[in-house]
Amino acid sequence: MADVVYCPRQSCGTAVMVEPDTTMGICTACQYAFYELRNLRDEYLSATSQGKKFLEQRFGKRVIQKAVEESFSRDWLNENCKSCPRCGTNIQKVDGCNKMTCTSCKQYFCWLCLGVLSRVNPYSHFNNPHSPCYNQLFQGVDLDDEDALWSDEED
């Protein structure tokens, strides 16, 4: 699946589709060819001070800074979030069961397999013996912490 990046030219900023395995992007609006952000970030961060100055002169210091920030943000999202199967919104699971509700489109989905869940009975996905997520509603949840949260005893 292609990534959406924005043309680094200040006068343009058009959304550009870049394939994950490529190192270059070409803006469809202004035809400007540019490094994919992660590659530019990696090259900049591993460069000597002279190499960094060269890259800043070549691309502009603000473009370099944006490339570094955006690619670190994208890496964090890829490591910590999953996309809603309906609208693609990034969702982070902090705690709770594996029945998720998208914050954007309100679609129910399974955190484990990203399958769309029934609006009428979303838990049937976890109760059906033929489902790949059968009996896994709480898979990955630390039950010791959950027991402490629901305990009637006071410390």
Score class of each variant (00 low, 15 high):
Thr103Ala: 15
Gln107Trp: 11
Gln57Tyr: 15
Leu112Thr: 02
Val68Gln: 03
Thr48Ser: 12
Asn121Leu: 14
Val141Ala: 04
Cys133Ser: 04
Val18Leu: 14
Ser49Val: 15
Cys97Lys: 07
Phe34Asp: 00
Cys105Ile: 05
Glu153Met: 07
Asn121Asp: 15
Tyr123Cys: 06
Thr101Asp: 04
Lys53Val: 13
Glu43Ile: 13
Val16Ile: 08
Thr48Cys: 01
Leu114His: 12
Lys61His: 13
Ile64Asn: 05
Cys81Arg: 01
Ser83Cys: 11
Ser83Arg: 15
Ser118Asn: 04
Lys82Phe: 13
Val120Pro: 08
Cys84Lys: 10
Glu79Leu: 10
Tyr108Trp: 08
Cys84Met: 10
Asn121Trp: 11
Trp150Leu: 15
Asp145Asn: 14
Ser124Tyr: 13
Ser131Phe: 01
Thr14Gln: 14
His125Gly: 04
Asn135Gly: 08
Ser104Leu: 13
Asp145Met: 14
Leu112Ala: 01
Val120Leu: 13
Met17Thr: 10
Gly60Glu: 01
Glu69Val: 06
Thr14Asp: 12
His130Thr: 07
Asn121His: 12
Ala47Arg: 01
Asn121Met: 10
Asn128Tyr: 09
Glu36Trp: 12
Phe72Val: 07
Val63Cys: 02
Tyr134His: 14
Ala2Met: 12
Lys93Met: 05
Thr28Ser: 13
Met1Pro: 11
Arg58Val: 09
